[in-house]
Design a protein around this nucleic acid. Sequence first.
DNA 1: CACATTCAGCACTGCGATGC
DNA 2: GCATCGCAGTGCTGAATGTG
Length: 211
Amino acid sequence: MGVKNPQWTAEKIKEGFDRFIKEKGRLPKSAEIDELNYLPNRKFIERNFGGLEKLRGELGYRDTHFGKGKFRSEIAHRVNISGRNIELNLEKLLKNKFGEVFVHTEKIFDNTKNRVDFYIYSPSGNLGIDVFGTETMHNLQTNMSAKLIKYSGFLERLFFVVANNSFSQKDLDLYMNKKIRVLPKNAKIITIESLEQVLSDMKTYPNPLLK
DNA sequence: CACATTCAGCACTGCGATGC
DNA sequence: GCATCGCAGTGCTGAATGTG
């Protein structure tokens, strides 16, 4: 930052932690530490104190890792429920449009156990959909990097649908454009609204169950 | 076993300081 | 004046993790 760093000591950092606790009722997580002007960069803590977990422990906090134990358990529970709801909602939407027969859920697409959330049959071209509710840019990144590997064998049209209000299509476009590991041509990250737009232009097969 | 989300760690960039 | 070094900061990847 040009200026000499303001001599961050463990005590000063503890003051910052306690201030955050007073405001939010818990310790800041690593990404949050970066956003606070009364705390140093997480990198600084990593370099000078051997990492966040270690420093929290040395400062006497009981909870030193928010990705473990009861914290992990709460997250897993929350994610499972909301993820399931998101999938159910989208499934309903897709079946309304294309009909029960033409919407496959959890379809295996290669010779491993990789599955797309949804696979749609349409005269306008078949397509795959993976849906998730990720709310932060950081999670979007880690999530996408895992998904891109998983879907490297999926060669048809593929949509990664971000189902929440945290991102606009503009945000997602920006992310896709500046991403280092580029998305394959057949794939795109889109919002629910964009998906609805795409679907509205697609043709559907007649229902074979009706006489 | 796959999944999303924690954190840590690596690679890289930018910028000032220092050295030649 | 230019090259090199070192630290701060950013972006992405990878390991660890509990649940269904």
